[in-house]
Design a binder for these strands. Structure first.
Length: 572
RNA sequence: GGGCCUGUAGCUCAAUUGGUUAGAGCAGAGCGCUCAUAACGCUUUGGUUGGGGGUUCGAGUCCCUCCGGGCCUACCA
């Protein structure tokens, strides 16, 4: 039994995520986790909320709440929605947990011992009105290059020129609009990534099976200009992990916190500890997933993320782990996704454009979304959500191909044989051909799932569903029944067993529907079809079942138009 | 500005890494079936692979160039 550690990029705390965020990491990670569990492998699937940083503080202020309270509340909201989407995390943690504080401080201490931390005194913009240092992006002013009056401190959106905050004419705080800004001297810790450049470079070189999207981004950062730059890992903020060397104070760094991108990936590890603590397990239980000296040497670790997160996962986080000199598990495979666009533009959290996870569940059950999103996952390039495409795909694939298959066979059986698997007859050439075909397709499906080829997996699964309809059409038990009821019984028995088989195979994509199919077939047998011959005999003659309600109602044109209108604007 | 990705049928995507006649699903057309959610099955129409040039026995794939789309560019996360 293989052991597989899976992490999804951790969603930021300030608000509910949209469908583009979902398909970028959490959903494909869940697909993979469910598949591996289905195959009988031991899986640890971790995710968490990313709670530190300036945007969290601002969102809390806007909501009129203390930041800790705001984050706790939003964590609850996100956990609930994730649960309703069927995201099967073994633990959904928080980067603000005590476990992550301790581990982040531990890593910082180890990196310092290894001589990989240096102090830098630098000048940053401080806003007296806001009472805080401002990240470059939170400073607005007039662009010295093109005169655009809403240029940001890092770059002018109008002319794309990169800027320094001090370049701006009449700079002001983007938070309060205050012009009462001053440049203050402040001291920060930098991670000496440059000292680890060669080590990281050869590590990346060893990952020959990673997508080009992943390695090319890492290579760019490693070799661009002067090569990999050192990175500031502390900030002058109140909310975050206090800067400490392990459990010791860090002289001169009082009142400062670690930068969110230093502590966020460490939460992948801390999350496992949260899991152990929450379930009353000893440390050894989480360490066997993360410490190669404590049992994790046979773990395969897979990370899922959107393309914007790649540099942090290929460089900063590995630098943190390698630099610690401790035997932590490093990522084996990194699956990154492009973006999902919404109806001709981008999904946007800040502008409230597109469909958000809570809204999606208000109009349709999770499996509709899971199927469409996964079967259209933006793997090779950005992809696009349109309501027409969504309606067509869902109606055809889920309602017509799969849902109707279940409906036609169960109802036919009920009317001719009653609600029990019929007895009599035997499988012949046609059934043998079907089993051979299914065997080939299931092996192909497994191959695509192992390779995390999401769209290809969906395509193959759909073809497996279609094979059931092809079989029924060719076997035509409604005709056979008239001359040879025994043979019709065997054909129906095959059909009913296909429903159970499809439930097992489809569970990673549409878990709730899969559960309904199994429940209708009155079985708990979810064993993976190593041998299709055996799998289609799991439900024996005489086994009771029930005709389920319609599995997937079709999306009507009226609904589609209604939603199209409702989601055309932006969220309030 | 620099780096990278991308452009294939009306739509969404393939093409075993340079190898026969570029394939699927949807949509369209025709036929069949009547168990089923007016569902299913079979057949079928769609392509000068963004334009142009080059390398090669052979190019969707490699090179050059032009055009379009996207991401990143280190203090949003």
């Amino acid at each position: 039994m293989a052991r597989i550690l899976i992490t999804s990029a951790i969603p930021y705390i300030n608000g509910i995520k949209h469908l583009g965020n979902l398909i970028g990491s959490q959903l494909p990670a869940d697909l993979y986790a469910r598949y591996q569990r289905g195959r009988g492998n031991e899986v640890m699937f971790l995710c968490a909320t990313d709670e530190h940083g300036t945007p969290a503080e601002l969102a809390a202020a806007k909501a009129g709440k203390p930041v800790a309270e705001y984050c706790a509340e939003m964590h609850g909201v996100q956990a609930d929605i994730a649960n309703r989407f069927g995201l099967s995390f073994d633990h959904f943690g928080r980067s603000s947990s005590d476990q992550n504080k301790a581990l982040t401080q531990h890593f910082a201490g180890k990196l310092d011992e290894a001589g990989l931390i240096r102090e830098v005194s630098e000048k940053q913009v401080y806003s007296n009105a806001d009472g805080r240092f401002l990240p470059d992006r939170y400073i607005e002013g007039t662009c010295p290059n093109c005169g655009y009056d809403r240029a940001r401190g890092d770059q002018c959106e109008n002319c794309t020129k990169q800027l320094d905050p001090t370049d701006l004419i009449e700079p002001r705080s983007a938070i309060s609009g205050s012009t009462d800004l001053e440049v203050r001297e402040t001291k920060h810790l930098y991670l000496r990534q440059s000292a680890m450049k060669d080590q990281l470079d050869s590590w990346i070189d060893s990952k020959t099976d990673w997508p080009i999207l992943t390695t090319s981004i890492a290579k760019k950062w490693l070799h661009d200009g002067d090569g990999l730059q050192d990175r500031g890992i502390t900030r002058d903020l109140d909310w975050g992990v206090p800067v400490m060397k392990g459990d010791q104070d860090w002289p001169g760094m009082e009142g400062k916190v670690f930068y969110v991108w230093f502590d966020a990936p460490i939460e992948y590890i801390a999350c496992a500890r949260e899991w152990a603590d929450a379930t009353g397990k000893p440390d050894a239980e989480w360490e066997r997933w993360w410490r190669t000296d404590k049992g994790a040497d046979d773990v395969r670790y897979v990370q899922f993320m959107g393309k914007d997160n790649v540099p942090f996962h290929t460089l900063s986080f590995p630098a943190t782990i390698l630099g610690s000199g401790e035997p932590w598990k490093m990522v084996d495979h990194l699956k990154s996704f492009n973006y999902l666009n919404y109806d001709g533009g981008q999904f946007s959290t800040s502008q409230g454009r597109g469909v958000f996870m809570d809204q999606a569940l208000e109009i349709l059950p999770a499996d509709y979304w899971r199927w469409w999103l996964l079967s259209h996952a933006p793997e090779s390039s950005d992809s696009e959500f349109t309501w027409e495409n969504f309606q067509q795909s869902v109606n055809k694939d889920l309602a017509d191909v799969l849902g109707n298959f279940v409906s036609r066979i169960t109802k036919f059986c009920r009317s001719k044989f009653g609600e029990a698997v019929p007895q009599g007859g035997a499988f012949g050439e046609r059934e043998k051909a079907l089993i051979d075909d299914l065997t080939r397709r299931i092996r192909a499906y497994e191959g695509h799932m192992e390779a995390m080829e999401v769209r290809k997996s969906a395509q193959e699964l759909r073809a497996i569903w279609v094979a059931g309809n092809e079989y029924l059409q060719a076997a035509a038990p409604w005709s056979t029944f008239k001359e040879d009821p025994d043979q019709a019984a065997a054909q129906v028995r095959m059909g009913l067993n296909l429903i159970r088989l499809y439930a097992v195979l489809s569970a990673p994509f549409i878990p709730a529907t899969s559960a309904r199919m199994l429940s209708a077939m009155n079985t708990l047998d979810t064993s993976w079809p190593q041998d299709v011959q055996d799998a289609i005999s799991a439900l024996p003659a005489g086994h009771d079942f029930a005709v389920p309600d319609v599995l997937f109602a079709k999306i009507t044109d009226e609904q589609r138009e209604d939603w199209q209108t409702r989601f055309a604007g932006t969220r309030d």
